[in-house]
Design a protein around this nucleic acid. Structure first.
Length: 195
DNA sequence: CACTAGATTTTCT
DNA sequence: GAAAATCTAGTGG
């Protein structure tokens, strides 16, 4: 009997780069409106870290859109971009320090033949579409099961040697920050968005 | 395989 | 009005 444990708010109140790696191998859990619950292993994340990070929405100050990034840890930040895609993030660090982690890719935990074959999870826009995550989740806590979206701890060890580090995707405009190695993924996962 | 253009709309300047 | 933390479909080698 495996005890499921939902990651508590305190888990997210830490250094963004550490949490981005600690989330790899954890489970993103979604309870759909039809009552079915499915688990997905997190295999790729990116850190958006602090007011100086030019790749981050928070680098140009607080706006209505990015306000939750300045709030407490463990809150969901979903924004809409490219006219088409929602991006799923989790706020990290202390209040008034704008930081968040973008969840870029997950893999199905159990065999998912029942899932629509068209569903893909390797990319931030794809996974929100597949998991039916939209801006209604913005500002909700991810450390409670109440809203149908939460994260559970790993069920087995993830050796540091299996974690790869790379530059973030789609942030060429970010000056010196575009080359920061703030993207993390599990090397041997077949569901990473890029290798 | 590499590269390019187009989709489509919110957000901020 | 331009750009955007993306993805797809198309072309060409």
């Amino acid at each position: 009997m495996i005890i499921m444990s939902v990651l508590p708010q305190s888990f997210y109140n830490n250094n963004t780069l550490k949490i981005a790696q600690a989330l790899l191998g954890c489970f993103l859990v979604r309870k759909f409106s039809d009552g079915k619950t499915r688990r997905f292993k997190i295999v790729e994340t990116e850190a958006y870290h602090g007011p100086l990070d030019r790749a981050s929405h928070a680098s140009r100050g607080r706006t209505p859109r990015n306000a939750v990034m300045f709030g407490e840890a463990g809150i969901i930040y979903v924004y809409f971009t490219y006219g088409m895609y929602n991006m799923l993030n989790v706020v990290t660090g202390p209040e008034n320090y704008p930081a968040a982690i973008l969840i870029r890719a997950v893999e199905p935990y159990v065999k998912c033949q029942r899932l629509n074959v068209k569903c893909r999870f390797d990319g931030p826009g794809r996974l929100t579409k597949a998991l039916k995550i939209d801006r209604a989740f913005n500002g909700l806590p991810i450390f409670k099961k109440k809203h149908g979206l939460w994260i559970e701890s790993r069920k087995e060890e993830l050796k540091p040697a299996r974690i790869a580090r790379a530059a973030r995707v789609g942030v060429d405009y970010a000056g010196a920050y575009k080359d920061k190695l703030w993207r993390f993924y599990i090397k041997d996962s077949g569901f990473v968005s890029r290798h």
